[in-house]
Design a protein around this nucleic acid. Structure first.
Lengths: 139, 139
DNA sequence: ACATATTTGCAATTATGTTGCAAATTTTAT
DNA sequence: ATAAAATTTGCAACATAATTGCAAATATGT
């Protein structure tokens, strides 16, 4: 089980360390996206704040996780399920933030629609975040 | 000229103060969205940091400005040009962030397209941010 | 002009993020 | 299996961003 995680690290030319295994494991078992603070709480004292920052940064650079721009401007991370390569992300899917439980979820199958921009604007990348109630929380 | 700004404050049941006039004026003359830091710089020492935070918060609650969720998770604010009411925003337009000059621009005429969500998800609000080059910066 | 209500600025505190460096751990070569 | 080289970690210090309580200052309604 954690063999798969080790392999993922090796495949991306990263040293296999406790912190990395632990953090990656969290992502694999998390119901949604994770913020730095979430990881810090779950790891409670076992991993240094700084190590978490650095690990998240490395994971992002390697294309293992991607950041999610949420409406409240908090930084969240989630696993890249598409094929992301080092330094290049293909996470062009819509993200959903539940207003009740707060979970942030990648809607991997819903891709961000194109929009027609005014004259002169040259688009490069689009992000879309939808707020509302997730399937567990709608009443 | 600043009469209009005063009226806007009065219309929203807010006291008319120097800080508020100054900050609102900045928004009316800014080329794009403003971050807390931008306002702090422009007001250089005349307005306390804390006052800026509180003013922005109040303006947002009153529906005068709205926050923009950018990809780099920095908080920016822009005037609500649509009719926003107290505690309820209708800023359903696309935002554009220029990768060169950094300007954040409200594309008031481009509204966020609807997307089809998986079963069970109940959308409430959608946000879309496009990165790229603005009309001034494309080469 | 005065009493009341609101807003401001200061100080203190908390949260968030970064950097340098020595110690610990992992990897590589033998 | 072991030692050297490379990488990663944790600590301390620092920088920035944001929040809160409270007294002084300012604005509003009569």
């Amino acid at each position: 089980m954690s063999e798969a995680i080790k392999d993922l690290l090796k495949k991306n030319h990263m040293s296999v360390t406790d912190s990395r295994l632990q953090i990656l494991d969290m992502f694999y078992h998390a119901p949604g996206a994770l913020a730095h603070a979430d990881i810090e709480k779950k790891a409670s004292d076992k991993i240094d704040r700084v190590t978490i920052y650095r690990t998240l940064q490395t994971f992002e650079e390697k294309g293992i996780i991607h950041t999610i721009p949420t409406a409240d401007n908090s930084v969240k991370y989630a696993l890249c399920k598409d094929r992301c390569e080092e330094g290049h992300h293909h996470d062009n899917h819509v993200h959903f933030v539940c207003d009740k439980c707060g979970k942030t979820i990648c809607l991997d199958d819903v891709h961000v629609p194109e929009v027609k921009l005014p004259k002169g604007f040259q688009p490069q990348q689009s992000n879309m975040v939808v707020n509302g109630f997730c399937s567990d929380c709608r009443s």
